[in-house]
Design a protein around this nucleic acid. Structure first.
Lengths: 241, 241
DNA sequence: TTGCGCATTGAACGTTTGTATTGCACGCTG
DNA sequence: CAGCGTGCAATACAAACGTTCAATGCGCAA
C-alpha cells in the first residue's frame, strides 16, 4: 500500500495528499476511507491533510474537481488531434487511468461530479446517435435516449467492475497492461450480433409484455408465483439459529 | 426511508432485519451502513440486530448467502420452464430485483459471494459462446474468455449504475417500472453494429499498437506527452490556497 | 401459579472516526 | 541577529461506531 512511485516525490505535499486520496477513495470508497489512512498513504501526518483540505468532504470535492479536470483536458487533447500523435494513447492512459479508477468508484458512491460526467457522456452519445458521426452508423433504435444511457452505463461498467475483470483476466483493464484486451473484447461485443433474429424477437416480445404487468407489480405483492417461490418465502420465516 | 411495505410485517424479526440490511447495504455500502441504521430501517433495536447476527460482518455474510440463494432459485425456476408461465417474469423480478440491487453494490464493495456470482456468469456465458446455445449465434471473437468477462461486466454495469440510469431515464431499471425500457435498449445495443467497418478496423489497430507500449508504460513515467499535459502537471504543483 | 426460556430493549464500554488546537523547526525579510 | 510566517507533526476532544451485558416482558410447560 505504500508503494508510491518515486515520481510522487516531485509533487507538493498537497498534490501528494490528493493523489493518495484518489487512490484510497477509489479502493475503499468514500465512507471506507479514513483521513488517517489517506495521510499514511501519502506519507504525511493526519494533521497535514486537515490543514490543506479542511474536511474529508472538502478533500473529496477536491478529488472530484481534479478528476473532471483531467478527464476534460484529456478529452480536449484527443479532440485536438492528439489521438493521431504516436504515443499519445499510452501516455493519456497512464495519467487518466488512476483518475478513471477514482471516478468509477465515485459513480457508485454518489458523487455529484461523477453524476455530471455520466450525464455528459450520455448527452454526447445521444447526439452522436441522432446526428450521426464520422464512422458511426446511425443507431437502429426507437429510443435513442435509453440507448445512449444504457450504453454509457455498460461502458462505465467495465471500469466500475475492473476488480472482477482483473481477477478473471489476470490483468487490470484500468492499467496499460490490461487495457487492450478489454477494449478489443468490447469492440467484438458491440460489433457482434450474438442473438438470432428469432430469439431476439422472442425476448423483445416477452419484455414488451412485461410492460402491462409492470406499473402495478411494484405495489401488488399478493400475486402467486407458480414455482418454488413458496420455498423461498419459507426461508424468510426461518426460526433463528 | 421508513416506507417498508406492509408485507414486511408478516416476516420474522430476523427476516425483517435481513431485509432491511439488504436495503441499507445496497444504498449506503457496507462501510457506510451502520448497525443502528439497519435496526432503525427494520423497526427494531440495535441490540436485536446484534442478537440474531452476532457481528456486522456476519450480517453481511447472511445477506450474501440469502442473495445467492434467491438468485440460484430464480435461475433454477427459469431453467425449469417457468419463463413460459405467464406472470412468471414480473413476479420473479419483484422478488429478485431488491436482491440484484444488493448484489450490484456487493460487487463493488468486495464481497466474495458477489465475486463468485460474477465468475459463475462469466463461465456460463463463455460456455454458451464456445459450445453454442439455442438461438445464439457463435460469437465472432478470437478471445472468448475476455468476451464473456467483459460482456458480464457490461451487463452487471447497468445494475451497478442503476442510480444514474434512474436519474437519466426517470425510472429505476431495477424496478418493474423501469426494467423493460432498459432491457429493450440493451437488446438494441447488443444487436446493433454502431461502428462502420473502417472505424472499427482503425480503432482496433490503434489498440493493437498500444500493446507494444503497454508492458513498460506502467512504470515508465518519463515519457513526454505532446499536448497540454504540461498544464495538467502544473496543477499538480499548485501552491496551497 | 410458578418457573423457565426466548424475544427484545436500553445502557454501557472501548475503539475509531473527523476535527480543532497547540507547538515546533526552518527559511525569509528587515 | 531578531522576528515572523509557513509547513508540518503531535496531541486533544467529542461524536459515532461495533459490541457486550444486564434487565424486562411474555408465552408456555409443569
Amino acid at each position: 500500500m505504500t508503494d508510491r512511485s518515486r515520481a510522487d516525490e516531485d509533487l507538493t505535499a498537497r498534490a501528494r495528499i490528493r493523489e493518495a486520496a484518489l487512490r484510497v477513495f477509489a479502493e475503499r470508497g468514500v465512507s471506507g476511507a479514513t483521513i488517517r489512512g489517506i495521510a499514511e498513504a501519502a506519507g504525511v501526518s493526519a494533521g497535514l491533510v486537515q490543514h490543506y483540505f479542511r474536511s474529508k468532504e472538502a478533500l473529496r470535492r477536491a478529488c472530484d474537481e481534479y478528476a473532471i479536470d483531467v478527464m476534460t483536458r484529456t478529452k480536449q487533447d484527443a479532440l485536438d488531434g492528439g489521438v493521431s500523435t504516436p504515443g499519445f494513447l499510452p501516455m493519456a492512459l497512464t495519467v487518466s487511468l488512476p483518475v478513471q479508477r477514482y471516478l468509477a468508484r465515485a459513480l457508485v458512491d454518489g458523487s455529484s461530479a461523477a453524476a455530471a460526467l455520466f450525464d455528459d457522456v450520455v448527452e454526447f452519445t445521444e447526439d452522436m446517435l441522432v446526428e450521426g458521426a464520422p464512422g458511426m452508423s446511425p443507431a437502429k433504435t426507437s429510443d435513442p435516449h435509453a440507448y445512449a444511457a444504457v450504453l454509457a452505463a455498460m461502458a462505465f461498467g467495465v471500469s466500475v467492475l475492473h476488480e472482477h475483470l482483473t481477477r478473471t483476466l489476470g490483468a487490470d483493464p484500468l492499467t496499460p497492461a490490461g487495457y487492450p484486451r478489454m477494449t478489443l473484447a468490447m469492440l467484438d461485443i458491440l460489433t457482434d450480433d450474438l442473438m438470432s433474429p428469432e430469439l431476439l424477437a422472442q425476448t423483445r416480445a416477452a419484455v414488451e409484455q412485461l410492460r402491462s404487468f409492470a406499473p402495478g407489480a411494484a405495489t401488488d405483492r399478493d400475486q402467486r408465483i407458480p414455482t418454488s417461490k413458496a420455498a423461498a418465502r419459507k426461508t424468510d420465516s426461518d426460526p433463528p439459529a
